[in-house]
Amino acid sequence: MAGKKVLIVYAHQEPRSFNGSLKKVAVEELSKQGCAITVSDLYAMDFEPRATRKDVIDRDLHLPVVIKTEEVMCGAQHLIGALSNPKFFNYGVEAYEAFKKRSLASDITDEQKKVQEADLVIFQFPLYWFSVPAILKGWMDRVLCQGFAFDIPGFYDSGFLKNKLALLSLTTGGTAEMYGKTGVSGDFRYFLWPLQHGALHFCGFKVLAPQISFAPEIASEEERKAMVASWAQRLKTIWEEEPIDCTPAWYFGH
């Protein structure tokens, strides 16, 4: 679809990995369609995953705003950010206020701009402990802040990113049988609930069905090639897909 914009948020340390291959083929296929592709390679960017006071920035100085206190720790003055409530740090509240004042750290606002411009956001990552790698979790924590991605009210179907598509493309260590309903790990839809529903749908994204490449590390070369080819083939018609039904029944009612 010429003119469409796609953001790939990529979280793997090794460019030659299977995840790297999936990211590469997505860039190639979507580019063939005339899409504009942006890749946020989180490890290559050394993206900061921690949500801290440093995310509140002095807009004029482009530095963390700090005020000195009387408290002395280890011989040095303790510094506290110029916060709406400097006596008790609440990251969610402070990030919300900073967003409204346009005083969030530039690495956050750079990613928010990419999301805002995208028609489709693809998250490419290996499954870690039934979830995303820490660096990607930090991206979600910091980038999808209140005011930008949602508000109260203004979440789930009313989330601020409701005109965008999102898709999880991930790899697992376990086989497909392990993630079946009767498998030892339980149905794969169970671990998708907090990621797709609790994060993406909460922010309003229309969520496409996940692309799960099961156990590529123990698969044969032919099987790995087939997984990559399957992903490339799906991307040829990705813009024709309907989002999943984002209700508990999709995850637990089958």
Score class of each variant (00 low, 15 high):
Ala2Pro: 07
Lys5Gln: 04
Val9Pro: 10
Tyr10Arg: 08
Tyr10His: 13
His12Thr: 04
Gln13Asn: 12
Arg16Pro: 03
Lys23Ile: 00
Glu29Met: 10
Glu29Pro: 06
Ser31Ala: 14
Gln33Gly: 04
Gln33Asp: 07
Cys35Leu: 07
Ile37His: 01
Thr38Ser: 14
Ser40His: 09
Ser40Lys: 04
Asp41Gly: 06
Tyr43Lys: 09
Asp46Met: 12
Pro49Leu: 07
Ala51Cys: 12
Ala51Pro: 02
Ala51Met: 14
Thr52Ile: 06
Asp58Val: 07
Arg59Lys: 15
Pro64Val: 02
Val65Tyr: 03
Thr69Asp: 11
Thr69Asn: 08
Glu71Asn: 08
Met73Tyr: 15
Ile80Gly: 00
Leu83Arg: 08
Ser84Val: 14
Pro86Cys: 01
Phe88Glu: 15
Val93Met: 13
Glu94Leu: 09
Tyr96Glu: 13
Tyr96Asp: 09
Ala98Ser: 05
Leu104Glu: 00
Asp107Arg: 06
Lys113Asp: 13
Lys114Thr: 04
Asp119Cys: 00
Asp119Glu: 01
Leu120Ala: 00
Pro126Arg: 00
Leu127Ser: 00
Trp129Leu: 08
Cys145Gln: 11
Ala149Leu: 02
Ala149His: 03
Asp157Glu: 15
Phe160Met: 15
Phe160Ala: 12
Lys164Glu: 07
Lys164Pro: 06
Leu165Met: 14
Ala166Trp: 00
Leu167His: 06
Ser169Gln: 13
Thr171Gln: 05
Thr172Tyr: 10
Thr175Trp: 05
Glu177Ile: 09
Met178Gly: 12
Met178Asp: 12
Gly180Met: 12
Gly180Asn: 14
Phe191Lys: 05
Ala199Thr: 15
Leu200Asn: 07
Gly204Pro: 03
Lys206Cys: 05
Ala209Asn: 13
Ser213Arg: 08
Pro216Trp: 02
Glu217Asp: 14
Ser220Trp: 04
Glu222Trp: 01
Ser230Lys: 15
Lys236His: 10
Thr237Arg: 09
Glu241Cys: 01
Pro243Val: 02
Pro243Thr: 08
Asp245Thr: 14
Cys246Thr: 13
Thr247Cys: 07
Thr247Tyr: 01
Pro248Tyr: 09
